[in-house]
Design a binder for these strands. Structure first.
Length: 486
DNA sequence: GTAGGGTTAG
């Protein structure tokens, strides 16, 4: 056990009214402007997009532009076309946040030349790049398997008119940890802790990183070192460790740690309780999860929507959907507003229990609550339709997404492509090939495994010509060993 | 966009 004392600020609770729904009058309103624009971008030839956008009767604002970016998030190339086209607009100039979005998308597409050109343009217009911009670029490099570039970018920030400080240092540590490069982050901390005056947050980031890769003992070591250096652990520190124990299945250790937190008069908060409820539930200890949930209210710590989501999920998985729905209704009665995660958890539970019809009812309930189904909602519907052998229904859902309200993401394509193999129909493999081409077109990089599967399928069903086309695509994507490049 | 809790699937 750690030998440090808690010194934690009092927990503040939001009043319950914070969670209450505001009553809205139901009117049939036209689609929000960002939806219409997103569809316009998706269907317009890029060459004429600027003219089209200038003719579009709308007041351009940074908020609207952000809305369009969100809609186009899963179609990177179109999102960048939109950015460029609007950049030529006579009466509108992009904000720093629009540049950040564009940088994010270009980096995700691994168009690094575009990224650096955008950074230069930001600088020329005195819009940045800001520390946030660098955080985005570093994160994308780390996610693309280039953690060293991420570090170099952080170290070169000041060459781009952006100062380095403890905040940006902690950001780069977090970026490395979130891409599982925890050892690298820890080395960086050791090298620069003096220069940037590393604080509790820096160490919390590293400890959390080790917990994320299931190395809780190492997290403990890091925190011991932190204390030896005279830094005070915070409640966040304890919550990180607590979650670490439960993550690695150390239920006993987690529970003991929780008891010790209470004994030492830590101001245990809603995050602590949610961690324990979830931890117990995942371990199959549903009764204990519930007991902790009941206890927190008695202790004057109100559950949040996330706490309810944890409990509902756990009941779905380890108990029954029926009991989960009882809790869902109870949370509504108490005035909480479920979010899309809540709905997704319930809907997934229903699907898993084979109750597709009731799942669909919850989808309409979701819409009635002004909580639009998101890409995860669609993905889980597609997944469960496929599992039920109803491939056509899955494709139907997919078609609906494509119309622009919610563009498919990488998961959607992966699930759907896998399902094209279950019926052993030659036509399905052609669809799989088409999906593969479409996903690349939209800036997603299929795994080698996906390419090979589709290729084999096409070859076995006598579609040699199409297979060749896919092979060329794979080569273009750099997903072939170099000796096989076409 | 300086850290911690809730959505995925073997």
């Amino acid at each position: 056990m750690l030998t440090f004392r808690c010194k934690i600020p009092r927990t503040t609770h939001r009043p319950l009214s914070h969670h209450l729904t505001t009553t809205t009058t139901t009117t049939t309103s036209p689609p929000p402007p960002q939806d219409a624009i997103a569809v316009l971008v998706l269907t317009t030839d890029p060459k004429t997009l600027t003219t089209t956008l200038e003719a579009h009767p709308v007041q351009w604002t940074p908020e609207l532009v952000t809305g369009v970016f969100k809609r186009l998030w899963n179609h990177g190339p179109k999102a960048l076309q939109f950015f460029d086209a609007l950049d030529y607009h006579r009466a509108y100039a992009h904000s720093a946040s629009a540049f950040d979005h564009a940088v994010d998308i270009a980096a995700r597409l691994r168009r690094y030349h575009t990224v650096w050109a955008l950074l230069a343009r930001m600088r020329a217009r005195r819009l940045g790049p800001t520390p946030k911009t660098f955080a985005i670029v570093a994160e994308r490099y780390a996610a693309a398997g280039k953690p060293d570039r991420a570090v170099r970018i952080f170290l070169s920030m000041h060459h781009h008119g952006c100062s380095q400080d403890l905040k940006s240092f902690n950001t780069i540590l977090d970026v490395l940890c979130k891409s599982k490069r925890v050892e690298k982050a820890y080395s960086l901390l050791k090298v620069f802790r003096g220069r940037f005056r590393a604080d509790t947050i820096s160490y919390n980031i590293i400890a959390n990183g080790f917990c994320l890769i299931n190395r809780t003992p190492r997290a403990l070591e890091v925190l011991r070192e932190m204390v030896e250096r005279g830094l005070e652990p915070s409640l966040t520190t304890y919550n990180i460790l607590l979650k670490g124990f439960f993550r690695t299945g150390q239920i006993k250790e987690g529970w003991d740690f929780f008891l010790q937190m209470k004994r030492r008069k830590c101001e245990i908060d809603v995050v602590t309780y949610t961690t324990v409820v979830h931890g117990f539930g995942v371990a199959g200890e549903v009764k204990r999860a519930r007991k902790v949930f009941d206890e927190m209210i008695g202790m004057g710590v109100l559950p949040s929507v996330a706490t309810y989501n944890a409990l509902i999920q756990v009941l779905c998985k380890k108990d029954s959907v029926e009991n989960a729905i009882v809790v869902f209704e109870e949370m509504l009665r108490k005035g909480y507003v479920p979010n899309s995660t809540t709905y997704n958890v319930v809907i997934r539970g229903l699907c898993h229990a084979g109750n597709m019809d009731e799942a669909m009812e919850y989808i309409s309930r979701m819409k009635d609550d002004k909580c639009e189904p998101n890409v995860q909602t669609y993905n889980l519907l597609i997944r469960y339709h496929c599992d039920a052998g109803e491939i056509d229904k899955a494709l139907e859902v997919f078609e609906k997404m494509g119309s622009g309200e919610c563009l498919p993401n990488l998961d959607t394509y992966n699930v759907l492509i896998s399902s094209m193999f279950v019926r052993k129909k030659s036509d399905d493999l052609l669809v799989a090939g088409k999906l593969l081409i479409e996903m690349v077109d939209r800036g997603f990089l299929p795994r080698k495994f996906t390419f090979n599967r589709v290729l084999n399928g096409l070859l076995l069903t006598g579609n040699q010509g199409f297979a060749k086309e896919i092979l060329r695509l794979q080569s273009k994507c750099g997903r072939l060993p170099s000796q096989f490049r076409l």
